[in-house]
């Protein structure tokens, strides 16, 4: 089969490559670009460890061919902190509230939380639980992840308010 040329923006940088059409986006991100944030956990689109943000949607990158992401704008956990190294409020929340243990689900959780809070900036605990229900965590029992999301929501809302004032 012929190789396909793909081009997309990942964490603000344009990347491209010549790949087999069957190359899964997760493999393109990990093997071709060398990212280590998105992880492979289940490969059947159940665990969410591979979640990245594509054009304003949370997507499981194990269940998308890289060619489908042609011309897309992708953010992974590597793109969350500011260029000066300041952590994003969500990253900070996960650390402050002990929202991670082994860390394997964390990049996916953070990226899912990112989109969730964009769409619902002040979610209830129940909305958080439904909002992250496409991401499995085997370590934390989710309770501290819920707190981490709340922490991030509060901080982001305060920042938004301050900016408005």
């Amino acid at each position: 089969m012929s190789k396909q040329h793909v081009k997309m923006t990942v964490n603000g940088t344009e990347v491209e490559g010549d790949i087999e059409a069957r190359t899964l986006l997760i493999h393109f991100l990990r093997e071709n670009i060398g990212l280590t944030g998105p992880h492979i956990g289940c490969e059947t689109s159940h665990c969410g460890a591979c979640t990245v943000d594509i054009d304003g949607r949370s997507v499981k990158s194990c269940t998308l061919f890289a060619v489908q992401a042609q011309e897309s704008d992708i953010t992974t956990v590597e793109g969350m902190a500011s260029p000066d190294g300041t952590l994003h409020a969500i990253q900070e929340g996960f650390m402050q509230e002990h929202g991670l243990q082994c860390g394997f689900c964390t990049p996916g959780m953070i990226m899912r939380t990112h989109r969730l809070l964009k769409e619902n900036p002040d979610p209830t605990d129940e909305e958080i639980r439904w909002g992250i229900s496409g991401n499995l965590c085997r370590c934390t029992g989710y309770q501290n992840i819920v707190k981490a999301v709340r922490y991030a929501a509060k901080k982001l809302n305060e920042t938004t308010r301050e900016a408005a004032e």
Binding site: V59, K60, T63, R112, W130, S133
Partner: peptide, 9 residues
């Protein structure tokens, strides 16, 4: 149906 990520696609 499924979960949030799957519903986006």
């Amino acid at each position: 149906i499924a979960d949030p990520q799957v519903r986006y696609c």
